[in-house]
Amino acid sequence: MVERLNEQLHLAEEALRNPDRWKGLSGYIMASCALEADSRGYLNLMTTRFDESETLLALRRRIQVHIEELVREARDTAAVRSNFRAEDLVFVFLANSRIAEMTMDVAPKSWRRNVELFLDGIRPERATPLTEPPMKPSQVARAMMRPRLRDPRRTERKGDKVSEA
């Protein structure tokens, strides 16, 4: 896992070196999602909490600092819509993981379409007001700490109790 996070860190550092803020940010998002969708990748890497490992936590913190800088600079130069925040990337990373997982045997590159649609959605040219504010970093952290919701198809009722099937 350290190797995969180091690859993510390298992608973020490379993106920050790109003087074109749109190309830097969009290139990072696409490359990060590609890395995760790769058959040797680790699905949910960018949305997994690593509370048990100080090494992994430190790497994630470094990546997060770079992501926040990438988004801030893209926003400051009007390369992305003014209301786009780093916390919004959670949604593309979560969606990418699920899409890559569900389509890897059928259409292994279909995740790209979702990312391309997302990237179009953060461009400033046609930005429309959003109905919800971005999540706060503390909300993102709390959401990531929640246990996965159980699949209701895997449970059965026994009296008033619900238990694993």
Results as ranks from 00 to 15, higher is better:
residue 72 R to K: 11
residue 111 W to Q: 10
residue 17 R to N: 11
residue 44 N to R: 00
residue 99 I to K: 08
residue 47 T to R: 02
residue 63 I to H: 05
residue 156 E to G: 10
residue 95 A to T: 13
residue 64 Q to N: 15
residue 66 H to R: 08
residue 165 A to R: 14
residue 22 W to E: 02
residue 15 A to N: 15
residue 27 G to Q: 05
residue 70 L to F: 04
residue 93 F to A: 06
residue 85 R to V: 10
residue 108 P to E: 04
residue 34 A to W: 02
residue 68 E to M: 03
residue 27 G to K: 03
residue 1 M to V: 04
residue 6 N to D: 13
residue 78 A to V: 07
residue 60 R to S: 08
residue 14 E to P: 07
residue 118 F to Y: 13
residue 61 R to N: 09
residue 50 F to V: 00
residue 90 V to C: 02
residue 41 G to P: 01
residue 92 V to H: 03
residue 76 D to C: 06
residue 66 H to E: 04
residue 36 E to I: 01
residue 116 E to Q: 13
residue 31 A to P: 15
residue 61 R to F: 05
residue 140 V to K: 06
residue 69 E to G: 02
residue 55 T to A: 07
residue 34 A to G: 08
residue 3 E to S: 11
residue 87 E to F: 06
residue 126 R to S: 12
residue 67 I to N: 04
residue 87 E to I: 00
residue 134 P to S: 06
residue 57 L to Y: 05
residue 69 E to A: 12
residue 119 L to M: 09
residue 16 L to A: 03
residue 88 D to M: 13
residue 27 G to D: 07
residue 3 E to V: 09
residue 65 V to S: 04
residue 14 E to Q: 10
residue 38 D to L: 04
residue 79 A to C: 10
residue 40 R to F: 01
residue 81 R to N: 10
residue 157 R to G: 11
residue 139 Q to A: 05
